[in-house]
Design a protein around this nucleic acid. Structure first.
Length: 487
RNA sequence: GCCCCCGUAGCCUAGCCCGGUCAAGGCAGCGGACUUUUAAUCCGUUGAUCGUGGGUUCGAAUCCCACCGGGGGUACCA
């Protein structure tokens, strides 16, 4: 089609969606007319010209499609209509009818081209098979692959129900900095960026944890944040350099309270977003309805491996047990580190769940409070479903002196890696010195939860625009030049 | 970072293993027929230096090397 912008209207009044029409006119019989006039708009996905009549399939992203029925006698500009391309945006007005073959349709009397698809759409039947193209040109993928659109819709419903549930429970949503002078709250390699007028480097946050707990010190006793965090590490079907986390903190609560909160939150979010607590995990089905099983890490490791491996074991003996199980550990590893390593390597992946794996070794949990009765462990749990970590939570460590000691210990091990800034967050310690009440904290990976609810295996499927290597065209002019023109 | 696999017209694929009328088919596009189609159908037709660059060879989509992009695995990831 040859169209100029002059031919395109500035607005178009839509009076019905395809989904609404299918609902309202479900009882129309074949070859029956409704007498109702509507106007619809969307993308033309198929077109069948039959001489003096023409059928088109309109997709308006409402979840259903509606057929457009045009005839030479009744349709304005019929000849042009019959020449529309697959992918063109069309607004059409006319009576709702059912064709002789029983397909609900809008019999087009007037119509407008709303946007021309100048680039050809992918194969109407096969769609986009090239995975790279699906991620790089998601705007095409969303039309061609309904399941892609569905996943983003599910994600949206999930997050909005999560907000609603937390607000109902008295939590307030807050926003903490993304630019951190010190990358804290998780042991991940950060992205570094530079602020020109302050002339200093910042790290993109790897977790909001330390700032959220500062707010609890400040008296905001139930806070949560849903936001992006950034980790400069490898990509995989389960890891994206930027991903979305929910973190929440509740004063006066311990990790047992947080378990109850977690299982109710996740099961209700599942109900609200996919309508069921049963989700498919490979060839199995798991049920997210509470209560979830609670089991100690030491117990679940014994259960799965048949080996007694506890945090208070002699370190050398623990390492021998790991070797027997085929798990490589570093030479000087403590029993707690070995326990955690064996759990992650051989146990976690086998757990269908949902299950709370509780009481982690203190060495791998620098921000969690010591267990009230078990030596060498902390009050921490991970929620596991389909062999993957869904949530991580603990009774927060509130003692500033012990926190300083834990940071120092982490600094020693992190110091071996020259890329890891091992700076201690003195301001956070000072916040603790002003007093953090007993607090329970929780982190949920939103992308992983979406994957579980959508039964998909790749994190890229639940992120609209996943991180990819830029194409040469996207890299554009060199950074130095850009900086010079901006400053 | 390392290992394995993939890259053919706008889209989906065949050909690659055993180099030589192999650059093929379908959809889309373009021209034509058609008043009830559902990936409409029928007739005709345009379109690809086979990811890029080297090499081997009389001859390479096909074999070799490097690079680019992607996928999977692995490593890093309190």
């Amino acid at each position: 089609m040859n169209s100029s912008e002059n031919d395109i209207p500035y607005s178009f009044e839509v009076t019905a969606t395809a989904a609404e029409l299918h609902e309202t006119h479900a009882d129309l019989c074949p070859d029956e007319r409704s007498g109702v006039s509507v106007s619809v708009a969307g993308r033309l996905m198929l077109r069948r010209v039959q001489g003096r009549i023409c059928f088109g399939t309109l997709d308006d992203a409402s979840g259903r499609r509606i057929q457009l029925f045009a005839t030479q006698t009744d349709t304005n500009e019929y000849r042009s209509f019959a020449r529309l391309s697959v992918g063109d945006w069309v607004g059409a007005a006319g009576e709702v009818i059912k064709t002789r073959r029983g397909e609900l349709s809008v019999e087009v009397s007037t119509w407008h081209l709303l946007a021309e698809a100048r680039r050809p759409f992918p194969d109407k039947w096969h769609g986009l098979a090239d995975i790279d193209a699906r991620y790089r040109r998601r705007y095409v993928d969303l039309w061609v692959s309904p399941e892609s659109r569905l996943r983003l819709q599910t994600r949206s419903r999930m997050i909005s129900s999560m907000r609603r549930l937390l607000e109902e429970k008295g939590f307030i949503e807050v926003e903490t900095p993304m630019l951190h002078p010190i990358a804290g709250g998780a042991a991940a390699r950060p992205f570094v960026t530079h602020h020109n007028s302050l002339n200093c480097d910042f790290y993109l946050r790897v977790a909001p944890e330390l700032y959220l707990k500062r707010l609890v010190v400040g008296g905001l006793s139930k806070v949560f944040e849903i936001g992006r965090v950034f980790r400069n590490e490898g990509l995989s079907p389960r890891h994206s350099p930027e991903f979305t986390m929910l973190e929440l903190y509740q004063a006066y609560a311990d990790y047992r309270d947080i378990m109850e909160l977690t299982e109710s939150l996740i099961s209700e979010v599942a109900l609200a977003s996919v309508g069921t607590t049963e989700v498919i995990a490979g060839d199995q089905i798991l049920n997210l309805a509470p209560p979830w099983r609670r089991v100690g890490m030491e117990e679940v490791v014994a259960e799965v491996t048949g080996c007694e491996l506890t945090a208070d074991l002699d370190a050398a003996e623990a390492r021998r047990t790991a070797a027997k199980l085929g798990v490589e550990v570093e030479a000087g590893s403590s029993a707690g580190q070995v326990l955690s390593e064996v759990y992650e390597r051989v146990v976690e992946g086998t757990l269908l769940g949902p299950v709370f794996v509780c009481d982690f070794p203190v060495e791998v949990s620098p921000l969690a409070r010591r267990h009230r009765s078990r030596a060498g462990l902390v009050e921490r749990f991970e929620a596991v479903a389909a062999g993957r970590e869904l949530a991580n939570a603990f009774s927060e460590l509130t003692d500033p002196d012990e926190q300083r000691g834990r940071f120092a210990f982490q600094g020693q091990s992190a110091g071996q890696d020259e890329c890891e800034p091992a700076t201690i967050d003195e301001d956070y310690l000072s916040a603790l010195e002003y007093g953090l009440p007993p607090t329970g904290g929780l982190g949920i990976g939103i992308d992983r939860l979406t994957m579980l609810l959508c039964a998909t295996e790749s994190i890229r499927d639940v992120i609209a625009f996943p991180t990819l290597r830029p194409t040469p065209a996207e890299e554009g002019e060199p950074a130095e030049q850009r900086q010079a023109t901006c400053s």
